[in-house]
Computed example of a mutant assay.
Amino acid sequence: MISPIIQEETTGCGIASVANVVGKSYAEMKALANSMGIYASDTSLWSDTQYVRHMLSRVGVEATENEILFESWGGLPDLALLAIKHHQEEGRDFWHWVVFKRVDGRDLVLDSASYLASNVRTDFNEMEPKWYIGLKTKP
């Protein structure tokens, strides 16, 4: 049974997504992020990939160097951060971070949004990812 971490702040999807990748609580990941100068209230957290990349690196997760255009669910690596709900405001890109995992051959998405009935998602046609960052956890 997978128990996704839920974001405790409206804008905390990046922090919660990294917590979901490494199995830390939201509070633990938020404390680490804050110690790095990363705050959920900073719009750059969901409009610039460098913040989550720094957090991932700090907790020992390797990330692909570039964002990769999403083509299909089957084409994703076994672990990835996905950018969904992509939109622009005043010419600036924004998105919602979620975690894609392939567990025992089953694809699922951990979505930290607090308003969802289930944070383990398989409604793939509804999410419309724009791109992803492939991830590898270190042993």
Rank of each mutant, 00 (worst) to 15 (best):
S47T: 00
T10G: 12
A19N: 09
S47P: 01
K24T: 05
M29Y: 11
G37Y: 09
N34D: 10
I38Q: 02
D48R: 12
S44V: 07
M29K: 05
A40P: 07
S17N: 05
K30D: 05
L32M: 15
T43K: 04
T10F: 11
D48Y: 14
A19I: 02
S35N: 15
N34E: 13
T10W: 09
T43H: 06
V22G: 10
A16C: 11
V52S: 00
V21Q: 11
A31P: 08
Q50W: 14
Y51D: 00
E9G: 01
M29H: 08
K24E: 08
Q50M: 12
H54G: 03
A19R: 07
E9C: 02
G37I: 03
Y39H: 13
S35A: 15
V18A: 03
Q50K: 14
S44A: 15
H54K: 13
E28H: 09
D42V: 02
V22C: 15
S17Y: 06
N34H: 11
M36D: 01
D48V: 05
Y39W: 13
G37R: 04
Y26V: 01
Q50R: 14
L45V: 13
K24Y: 14
K24G: 06
A31E: 14
G23P: 14
A16Q: 06
V22Q: 08
W46Q: 03
S17D: 01
G14H: 03
V22D: 05
